[in-house]
Design a protein around this nucleic acid. Structure first.
Length: 482
RNA sequence: GGCGACGUAGCCAAGCGGUAAGGCAGAGGACUGCAAAUCCUUUAUCCGCCGGUUCAAAUCCGGCCGUCGCCUCCA
């Protein structure tokens, strides 16, 4: 099966044909680090994380690049406010970005280029555009001349005429055409700036992505992504710059995710209705946030509220219980037991194996269809039910365990591609804690055996207060952290 | 005004021509010393409204209503 993705450029689902066999290049527009990331910001990064994992699952060697816009008006403003250097602000929030996204299980991209580290590359490209007649200089500012690029508007489906008619912004008189945009901005007094052939200044917003995408991934890259709001003008302008400069198609597949709304409006810092990732995580686990985001198809808008996170939290706990139960029955490693012969695995074993294999097929089908993670999540829950159902009666024979191990492998594969994997929450000190809890459980079991339920319940209650939940499951006592 | 998306059970959400996945919540049952976890059963005669096409439509076409996004910085 081949992966089909919805391409904003053609407004249709297309089969993914990589630029280079077995390789996939991804460029995702990153954040401007001037504040903490909110849940809306996180969506594209979670989506692209899954996209990347799935491509890798399908055998592609992926190059994933994501920028940081580490100099821009908002950073400058915040720096001025706090009496700090812009670089300090950017540096701090880049760190926070990683901390937050790590918590959602987002793998690191292969490169995170920053604007301030590519000033010369940017100047070179602007210079190139000037030489080719696609740009003009006015008094230290350099603008892109959209009238020179015949395909302008092809991504957002607008014509220059329409754009002009709909313009809601005061026209900058220095521009030839209202839709022209800045490639290089002349520095205001006292602002951070770099010297250039046009005087002191800094890059415009759009040029950085063209420069860095071309530098790290080359021409004709496979995927370029970001939120739908970036289609116009940002991505439209990137196309204009890059294709004018190289004469090649810039991007093969443009992929845009829908917004996260909050109380009916999009969640955006400018509207002030944001919930930061760390706020959400005060109450809910990172995996719950991730599950919430993946429970809706990436192109649909998704409405945020904390109660939905609560539902996702419950769902995640269910998934997590499957991991824990399997671990309890099969041990931490396992999983590699040889597949039993069909005639040896018994009726229920055969059923489980069939269901599990079918789940994997359904999973791939869902993901191949424009990364339908919502359906894929459904498959994962189906598989969970099959596994739990099988475990109602403990697996006794070696064959049954082997079947279970196979099912676990599929469960882990699907979970892994979706990135819904329990963190090693207990860490190093967990070893000790784990042993201690086991001792307590043992003592409680003795009390239960002696029908000293008051004592048994007291132990359970007091552990519960510490956030450690005991469950007397048919397979034995199990504990988990709340 | 132009461009675009969406409207499926109490809530969330798949399905996009063949007779409604999944999650959360609710109800009943099984298991359990109790609880938790888990399993089973159950919860939309129907997919915003009105027409049309078709043997067959939530799915296609037309109209209407409603919500949202983009056209300006924004994931």
């Amino acid at each position: 099966m081949t992966l089909r993705v919805y391409n904003t450029l053609t407004k249709s689902k297309e089969e993914f044909q990589p630029r280079e066999a077995n390789k996939a290049s991804i460029y995702v527009c990153g954040v401007t680090p001037y504040n903490y990331c909110h849940v809306g910001n996180a969506r594209p990064y979670v989506v692209w994380d899954v996209f990347r994992r799935y491509l890798e699952y399908k055998g592609y060697e992926v190059q994933h690049v994501q920028n940081f816009t580490d100099v821009d008006d908002k950073i400058l403003a915040r720096a001025a406010e706090e009496n700090k250097k812009p670089g300090e602000i950017a540096g701090k929030f880049i760190e926070e970005y990683f901390a937050d996204l790590d918590g959602l299980g987002v793998q690191r991209a292969h490169a995170y280029p920053r604007v301030t580290e590519h000033i010369q590359d940017i100047i070179d490209m602007v210079q190139g555009l000037l030489e080719k007649g696609y740009a003009y200089q006015v008094n230290g500012d350099v603008f892109y001349d959209v009238s020179q690029f015949k395909d302008y508007g092809k991504l957002s489906g607008r014509s220059l005429a329409e754009l002009r008619a709909g313009a809601r912004v005061e026209v900058d008189k220095r521009k030839n055409n209202p839709m022209d945009f800045a490639l290089w901005k002349k520095a205001k007094p006292g602002e951070v700036s770099w010297s250039s052939p046009w005087g002191q200044g800094r890059p415009g917003w759009h040029i950085e992505c063209s420069v860095m995408a071309l530098k790290y991934l080359g021409e004709n890259i496979d995927f370029h992504g970001g939120g739908v709001d970036l289609i116009f003008p940002h991505h439209e302008n990137e196309i204009a710059q890059s294709e004018a400069f190289t004469g090649q198609t810039f991007v093969r597949y443009w992929v845009h995710n829908g917004f996260v709304n909050f109380s009916g409006e999009k969640m955006a810092k400018s509207l002030g209705n944001v919930v930061s990732i760390r706020e959400a995580r005060e109450q809910y686990s990172g995996m719950a946030v991730r599950l919430y985001l993946l429970s809706t198809h990436y192109r649909s808008p998704i409405d945020f509220d904390l109660e939905k996170l609560s539902a996702a939290q419950k769902g995640w706990e269910r998934l997590q219980n499957v991991w824990k139960t399997l671990e309890q029955v099969l041990g931490k490693e396992g999983g590699q037991l040889p597949a039993p012969a069909p005639e040896d695995m018994g009726e229920r074993g055969e059923k489980l194996l069939t269901e599990a294999q079918e789940a994997l097929n359904r999973f791939e089908e869902a993901m191949d269809d424009d990364l339908n993670t919502a359906l894929a999540v459904g498959v994962l829950f189906d598989l969970s039910r099959e596994i739990n159902s099988f475990l109602r009666e403990p697996a006794t024979t070696g064959e049954e365990k082997a079947v279970l191990a196979q099912a676990r492998q599929i469960f882990q594969t699907i979970s892994g591609v979706l990135g819904l994997v329990p963190a090693a929450e207990l860490g190093d000190e967990g070893e000790l804690l784990d042993s201690l809890i086991k001792i307590i459980i043992e003592l409680r079991q003795e009390a239960r055996k002696n029908k000293d339920y008051a004592r048994a319940d007291r132990i359970r209650d007091r552990l519960a207060k510490l956030g450690i939940v005991l469950e007397d499951a048919p397979q034995g006592v199990r504990y988990r952290r709340k």
